[in-house]
């Protein structure tokens, strides 16, 4: 299968992830959408590695995974802390940064 199809799939998944961030109010789901976007990017990297015939893309994808894992740990801890103090995980509740 040509790499272009993979890249198109990655684009679609990335757009779905972006839509999730924009549409869902639940912080955990918004977070999942971010993970989906990272995965879409990873797919693009892996595809590019195959197309160019070297492994650097895969290494970068690997690093992305590591960073995503770290991010998930910290992000979920933050969500927990917010939930603990506000009894809610809605991102609309934390709208103090306003006029």
């Amino acid at each position: 299968m040509s790499p272009d199809a993979y890249l198109s799939l990655a684009s679609i998944l990335f757009a779905i992830g972006a839509a999730g961030v924009l549409l869902r109010r639940n912080a955990i789901i918004a977070f999942m959408s971010i993970e989906l976007m990272l995965n879409a990017a990873n797919l693009a990297f892996v595809t590019a590695a195959r197309a160019w015939g070297n492994l650097d893309g895969q290494v970068v994808a690997f690093f992305v995974m590591v960073v995503a894992a770290a991010e998930v740990v910290v992000g979920l801890a933050i969500i927990m802390t917010i939930f603990r103090s506000r009894q809610s995980t809605s991102v609309d509740e934390t709208s103090l940064l306003r006029w």
Partner: peptide
């Protein structure tokens, strides 16, 4: 104009995207 700054992170990310 200040209504743009509504404090909703999703509005901000919408503008970003």
């Amino acid at each position: 104009l200040r209504r743009v700054e509504n404090g909703f992170v999703r509005s901000y990310s919408l503008a970003l995207v």
